[in-house]
């Protein structure tokens, strides 16, 4: 198991009587991509601002391991942490050219002087801003500003990258590019911490998700493990041909019988009243199972062998997003009721 590079200990931030972040405890290990997910106002940006030393916590602390040393209290590290790159909120820049800004930021963070231009060119090309390198930021679109925000966070090639809503304002293509780049960063051994309210974007890239609501972490684990908390998971099967509507009821009954021991017995009626559903438009089956990994294999085996004459399965997937959404909804619901919300 890799070493812990960042640790939150009872991190709390209050604005007057309002608690924005409430006793957060988290550990981030080297090379992980961690997602911090929560609704607007849940405390994501406040948490990140405390990591960036822009805000001071009221209590608790953030520990950081710089240069493979011991974990140190972030507030006691007197210099800025050049091993971390930050993109906080919607970035706002001085009205200078992209090149001037990036050069200044790289200089500030001690990036080798002789490599700065090369690095700027590399990132600017990667994020398709080459034409805008010598243009002033005020001429940039929202998406371009966001891209520049990404570039400034990684210009100095940091060990840890902390991104707050990195995909805000980006077009779908750019989002894919960003996701691809985040994975590339991970492959280089970087640790990445992403805050977002966009579950899909997060679940696509993150190893672990921290769910935050009312300033408290209400869950922190892999998507799969979080799903286990609910004791339910779903499988989507896409079929080669549509099912015959006249035989559908019989077929679904047979499926329920055969898969009975693997299906979710305590399925929340809010999610679905029956554990197997057919969607004619998608030519797909949705199966709510007990969430165990071994059950997944057994289900697939039965679908292929026992129903060979009824249909052909061409895709067998476990959608992370919908699961995560359910996990998230469940946890938020629980957390809200604990906080006294109706």
């Amino acid at each position: 198991m890799s070493e812990v590079v960042m640790k939150f200990e009872n991190l709390t931030k209050k604005y007057g009587n309002f608690t924005a972040v409430n006793e957060i405890n988290l550990e981030v290990r080297r090379g992980e991509i961690i997602g911090l997910v929560g609704p607007n106002g849940a405390g994501k940006t406040t948490t990140i601002k405390m990591m960036a030393k822009i805000l001071r916590p009221n209590s608790g602390r953030i520990l950081i391991r710089t240069n493979h040393s011991e974990l140190e209290d972030l507030q006691k590290v007197s210099s800025t942490i050049t091993q971390i790159g930050f993109l906080i909120d919607i970035p706002s820049f001085y009205n200078m050219t992209a090149y001037q800004l990036l050069r200044y930021f790289a200089n500030l963070q001690n990036y080798p002087k002789d490599q700065i231009d090369e690095r700027i060119n590399e990132l600017i090309t990667l994020f398709k801003l080459t034409e805008w390198k010598h243009e002033k930021v005020k001429t940039f679109s929202k998406g371009m500003v966001q891209k520049l925000g990404m570039i400034q966070a990684i210009i100095h090639d940091p060990e840890i990258v902390i991104l707050d809503e990195p995909q805000t304002g980006l077009d779908p293509l750019a989002r894919v590019e960003i996701r691809r780049y985040i994975r590339k960063l991970q492959s280089q051994g970087k640790t990445i911490f992403i805050a977002s309210h966009m579950l899909y974007e997060i679940s696509e890239v993150c190893d672990k998700i921290a769910l935050i609501n009312y300033g408290s972490i209400i869950g922190f684990d892999t998507v799969e493990n979080l799903a286990l908390v609910l004791k339910t998971s779903e499988i989507n099967c896409v079929l080669l041909n549509p099912l015959n509507p006249s035989e559908l009821e019989t077929l679904l009954n047979r499926l329920s019988e055969k898969l009975n021991s693997y299906l979710d017995q305590n399925l929340d009626p809010l999610i679905s009243k029956i554990p197997i559903k057919y969607y004619p438009e998608q030519q797909g089956l949705k199966i709510f199972y007990d969430g165990r990994n071994e059950s997944k294999g057994e289900i697939l085996k039965i679908l292929i062998k026992d129903f060979e004459s009824d249909f052909t399965v061409i895709s067998f997937t476990q959608p992370k997003t919908s699961q995560l959404e359910r996990v998230y909804a469940e946890m938020v619901k629980e957390n809200n009721s604990n906080n006294g919300d109706v």
Partner: peptide, 13 residues
């Protein structure tokens, strides 16, 4: 006011 600090504060004391 312009929130440029969010970019620059983490980079320099």
């Amino acid at each position: 006011n312009k929130k440029t600090g969010a970019i620059v504060f983490p980079k320099i004391n």
